[in-house]
Amino acid sequence: MSSKKIKNKEIRAASLLEKKSTRRNFLKGLSIAAAAGSAALTTGCIPAADAASTEELKLRWQEFFKKNYRLMTQEEKDATVARLERLSKLNANLDVQMGSYPPLDGVLYGYAFNITRCEGFMECVTACVKENNLDRKTNTQYIRIFEMEPGQLDPSTGDGQYYHEVPVDNKFYMGTQCFHCEKAPCTKACPTKATWKEPDGIVVVDYDWCIGCRYCQAACPYYGRRFNWGKPEIPKEEVTRRQHYLGNRIRPMGKMEKCTFCIQRTRKGRLPACVEACPTGARVFGNLLDPESEIRYVLKHKKVFRMKEELGTDPKFWYFID
């Protein structure tokens, strides 16, 4: 072996050592190489080997090695959103507009529900299903409305499956959904830190970090979380195209999902779909930090209570009576 060759080898080794390399980068590089070159390597890995095009395959590989949403820089968020938009186009021929817009400063969302006014029409439920791209096959719903006997305030005593003309005399109606607890037990239960409370008070799920263990569902005392047992089925023309990464984008199979106060709407100043759809004005939504907001008026002037307040979960969802 000539001395020249040895020198070359040394230089190469030195450059390799100097180059900063993390496990993630290494795997990423490996994955892209694998995606481009060897089809044999891809079989049996998470993305299915029958991916239609190399573009799709590449996108899915990159998606697989992305970070937790909270660790991403804005560029990385933009990149994953762009990938998901493209994948949606490739897979389902759907043009979605996905966003990853951050929380607004000085805003903490809160919700109030008037149990005197709700008459059980359930228009909130249909609006929610449509807005949040919920699975039509299993009839997934974030909101539940209970028909209650007078004097009872625990929804478990009510009828959550009524279907008859409403309102029925001498009954009242009480809705539940995710209460976005300030001390949310679900976020503590998650082993992969895939669910957390955003600075504006919304408890969100990173669907791509969720492993579907359902610990959070067990931890939630309000039955606020739902699990995707199958791939969500939504008629193409009914898909809500305006989406948020943490909100109503179509969840993959085996993921946990829940009400996000319609994050894709509320961070743009819009009311959640349930509030907008409510025909009786029983739902009040607004900024808890704004002393002039409607929600603050309700908290100040009405008789309010929260469900299972003694648990100390500090939900940001109040019930009130006229």
Partner: peptide, 21 residues
Amino acid sequence: CHNPHSPRFEKRFPATYSVEL
């Protein structure tokens, strides 16, 4: 929201139904 001539909301069927969790 209210019809001023008959302001109470009419009884009707709910927009959907729920299945058991």
